[in-house]
Design a protein around this nucleic acid. Structure first.
Length: 864
RNA sequence: GCCUUGGUGGCGGAAUUGGUAUACGCGCUAGUCUUAGGAACUAGUGGGCUUGCCCAUGAGAGUUCAAGUCUCUCCCAAGGCACCA
């Protein structure tokens, strides 16, 4: 089979097998390049070439071609270097970008670094090395590693969130929010370590203990900066809200749902309940009068407000509960008979962190003696409790308790032996309560209504009596953006004794981070210790003033970076309107699912604010979003440094080549799936590349065709492959695209001679996946111009039509035979042929044929 | 507890509107290549037996000429939320 020439080449390859890693390159470089696929050499060669010809990949501000903005989530440059997970998503966007460019699109495909954040600061505390240095070293490593993968980023647009020329605009945006009432200061509960005298992030205060000194963390009210994200939950002006906006973007449903749940919209009713303070008022007559008249009472000592989504169960209320922080407790404290007990409970609750409260499995509470509340619907006087299973921050901080139809109330009522009154009938299991909707019972004139109808009527009643109304609540709170940390963008505010809170004038931006900061934990925001930084003149009155010493949450920096790529060097604006209009919004965004909520929600919020203020002409930043699935270690567990099972891309590139690694990561499975690494699996991909490489020795460039029939079949396959690979790349099904390329390669390999045009098509189809190999082979075929300046091939619809088809013959749905027929065979003809087949005859035997089902070109099913 | 996504050979995974289950790759088996070697080549590879038939897509039922795909019940795994009234 093999020609003498091929045999000779094979022998050469054999004698110099690639497993031999000893460095023989120097001996005879020409020979090596000729005979053997050596990714180490060709990858370096083409990376150099691409670096010298950045125009091949760069985004053109002045081009008329249709734009496409393909974005990766910019990485945090950690000291650990690039991870195989980075490689996975970057390869996906690189393939997509290269494909789009070859299809004539003007592609913006930038990369940058999310360089502020805790790890570098903690490292500085430990080692004394300045975060600036740590980060710049890590960035260098990342860039080298990224380039070694052959990713076609437009480095001329690189951003780094820790550089003053970037965070100047983060600060500018803060001031924009501030001036528009969207950034404000208020007291907020924070985790506070009394020994370190500092605020701790939630993750530093796990289990209520300080990460550093192990002492008990307490909750402390401190002045903190917030962004008013809750203003943008619903549509605002021309801007769609964070909820509605989700409907028009192409994101994974699970991610949209996560955001929805995080926002946590709930629709219900809020109403007032009269508070009875003493025995005298509990007399039947006065209570009734109270019920009817309290709505007009100006003295709010006399009622509490509760929120519920289940007003249909209101007749089942047997008690009410307020959170320990509820203000009613102070207002009525003179009337509380067991004040000592109540105060003790409140104080204990205050000590608990939110985490403790949530983790407490047993509900606790204390009845407030001497006080009753009145259910306005039936005038019943009910006991009032204080219990920390009711959250002060949500709703009104007070709830009506319906133990018959709410799990939490049921649990509490069982423990304190409170009445349980059923008011909804429906199916329920023994020993359990009914929490679903049903038909109302024991609810006076509302009996026999279903829950939904009842909710409507009861709410209307509340509104008519002016004691309540419809109410929508959200779980989402405003975004706390201030951090008592060094390595972040300083908040551009100055405090003057005379003028108070003064924003830093725009001309004075950026407020630069001082270098002369001691990182050792002193207990306060490190910026407080830089005199140079702290002591300033008030921009308004020129008097002595102090700078805000808090920095911004790193999520602020990452909420707008995608906008900066449009105009990364602009010194006058965060980006010019013209360039924003040219490049934004992002057409495809790829990154980890761990950002489903915070980063992606904050970025959407920023976009909506800027749209509302007229800076942007769109209100959703990322039109299409996909997540890359986690790559697990070979044993199916998560890769982690401590387990020592982390795969370093550098090692893989060294052993198998960047092209092999790229293709392998795409071939492992669907992009979004979690999948385990298999070092052996990469061997198959490498073999595939070798096969493509070796085919160059059997090229027929004379245009003669030896086997016409074979050639027609191959042509069909080639055009089918063009169609499939194109469709798969567009749908980001890279695994099946590669599989199709393998099938084509295997088929071409069987040919005695390979037509040069076919080989060129194969290489072109492969080029986005294995860019180095493709460039090298393309050059060897005598082309002077980069393969990436070629047009992506189009398939010929005429050529993908099969002449013949394999018709499946079934009897009663079971496959009994397969026949090769002409693809457009008619039902009559197919029947005729099928009934003549021995295998069919046997199965039909003498039975009567009831029905024949025919699917054109596919199958014929005989039903007996 | 609630929500979401999944469960297909020894492994990673394919499978259009329901229409050949296991494509492609790994691994494995046998063989080939004038030393050896495999990250080379060739062929085979879901299971069972009576060798042309039966059984197989987490389990069980249902709809259909036909189910991995649709419907219901249950089991398991991963991820998210978690006292939000």
């Amino acid at each position: 089979m093999d020609s003498p020439h091929t045999k000779k080449i094979k022998k050469m390859i054999k004698n110099n097998n690639i497993a031999n890693k000893s460095n023989k390159e120097s001996k005879n470089e020409d020979f090596w390049c000729e005979g053997k696929y050596n990714p180490e050499i060709i990858e370096r060669k083409w990376q150099k070439y691409w670096a010298k010809n950045p125009d091949n990949f760069s985004a053109k501000d002045d081009s008329d071609k249709e734009k496409a903005f393909i974005l990766d989530m910019f990485p945090y440059p950690s000291g650990a270097g690039l991870h195989v997970g980075h490689v996975e998503s970057y390869t996906a966007t690189d393939i997509y970008s290269r494909y789009l460019r070859m299809n004539g699109k003007n592609v913006l495909h930038p990369q940058g670094f999310d360089a502020f954040g805790l790890p570098a600061e903690n490292y500085a505390i430990k080692t004394g090395i300045h975060p600036k240095e740590t980060i710049s070293n890590a960035v260098e490593v990342f860039k080298r590693q990224i380039d070694s993968m052959g990713f076609s980023y437009d480095w001329s647009r690189e951003v780094n969130s820790s550089l003053p020329e970037y965070y100047k605009w983060t600060q500018w945006l803060f001031l924009l929010f501030y001036k528009n009432g969207l950034a404000y200061k208020k007291k907020a509960k924070v985790n506070w370590c009394p020994k370190c005298q500092t605020v701790l992030a939630n993750e530093q205060a796990e289990n209520g203990k300080c990460e550093r000194c192990e002492s008990e963390v307490i909750q402390k009210d401190l002045e903190q900066w917030f962004f008013k994200i809750t203003d943008f939950i619903e549509d605002k002006g021309k801007t769609s809200g964070l909820l509605n906006g989700l409907e028009k973007i192409d994101w994974p449903n699970s991610t949209k749902l996560l955001q929805k749940n995080w926002i946590g919209k709930s629709e219900g009713a809020q109403f007032k309940m009269a508070v009875i303070l003493n025995e005298a008022e509990r007399n039947e007559e006065s209570r009734k009068n109270k019920t009817r008249s309290f709505a007009n009472a100006q003295d709010d000592k006399h009622f509490i407000e509760v929120y519920t989504t289940r007003i249909d169960t209101v007749f089942g209320m047997t008690y009410a509960v307020v959170a320990p922080e509820h203000e009613i407790l102070k207002r009525v404290q003179d009337d509380i008979k067991n004040l000592d007990e109540v105060e003790k409970y409140i104080n204990e609750s205050k000590k608990k962190t939110d985490l403790d409260r949530m983790e407490a499995k047993v509900k606790t509470g204390v009845e407030i003696k001497g006080i009753k509340v009145v259910n306005p619907f039936n005038g019943e006087a009910l006991p009032l409790f204080v219990a920390d299973y009711v959250l002060s921050q949500y709703g009104t901080g007070a709830v009506m308790a319906v133990p018959a139809h709410d799990e939490r109330d049921f649990e509490f009522a069982k423990k304190y032996k409170l009445k349980i009154k059923e008011v909804i009938s429906g199916d329920k299991k023994d020993g359990e309560i009914l929490t679903d909707d049903g038909i109302l019972i024991n609810s006076s004139k509302y009996d026999n209504l279903n829950s939904e109808e009842a909710r409507e009527k009861l709410t209307v009643w509340l509104e008519e009596k002016k004691i309540g109304q419809r109410k929508i609540n959200y779980k989402l709170r405003d975004w706390l953006v201030s951090r008592q940390r060094y390595w972040g963008a300083p908040i551009p505010i100055i405090y003057c004794e005379k003028c108070g809170e003064v924003p830093v004038p725009e001309k004075d931006l950026p407020v630069e981070l001082p270098d002369d900061v001691d990182f050792k934990p002193t207990g306060e925001s490190p910026l407080k210790y830089s005199k140079k930084f702290q002591e300033v003149r008030c921009p308004k009155c020129g008097g002595e003033a102090k700078r805000e010493s808090d920095t911004m949450d790193t999520f602020v920096c990452s909420s707008w970076y995608y906008l900066r790529y449009a105009d990364p060097k602009n010194e006058k604006e965060f980006a010019s309107k013209e360039k924003l209009e040219k490049w934004l919004p992002v057409d495809l965004y790829v990154g980890g699912a761990e950002h489903s909520v915070l980063h992606l929600l904050y970025a959407r919020f920023f976009t909506k604010v800027l749209h509302n203020l007229g800076y942007l002409n769109f209100d959703e930043p990322f039109l299409k979003l996909r997540h890359q699935g986690t790559i697990l270690a070979e044993d199916g567990t998560k890769m982690s440094k401590s387990k020592g099972n982390v795969v370093n891309p550098d090692d893989v590139v060294k052993e198998f080549g960047a092209d092999a690694l790229r293709i392998f990561e795409m071939f492992m499975g669907p992009l979004e799936d979690m999948k385990p690494w298999q070092t052996k699996g990469i061997v198959g991909v490498r073999r595939f590349l070798e096969k493509v490489w070796k085919m160059q020795t059997r090229i027929n460039d004379q245009g003669t065709v030896n086997n016409k029939i074979q050639n027609i079949k191959l042509n069909t396959l080639i055009h089918k492959t063009i169609k499939k690979v194109s469709a798969d790349i567009e749908a980001m099904r890279f695994n099946t695209a590669i599989s199709a390329l393998m099938i084509l390669t295997n088929e071409m390999e069987k040919q005695e001679e390979i037509q040069i045009t076919n080989y060129q098509l194969l290489i072109t189809l492969l080029s986005p996946f294995a860019p180095h190999l493709a460039e090298e082979l393309w050059e060897k075929l005598g082309h002077n111009e980069s393969i990436f300046l070629q047009k992506w091939p189009a398939h010929d619809p005429e050529l993908i039509k099969d002449e013949e088809a394999e018709l499946i013959v079934q009897v009663n749905g079971k496959v009994r035979d397969k026949i090769i027929v002409s693809a457009d065979i008619s039902e009559e003809e197919a029947k005729k042929i099928a009934f003549e087949r021995e295998k069919v005859k046997i199965h039909i035997a003498k039975k009567e044929i009831k029905k024949v089902i025919f699917v054109k070109g596919r199958l014929i099913n005989v039903v007996i």
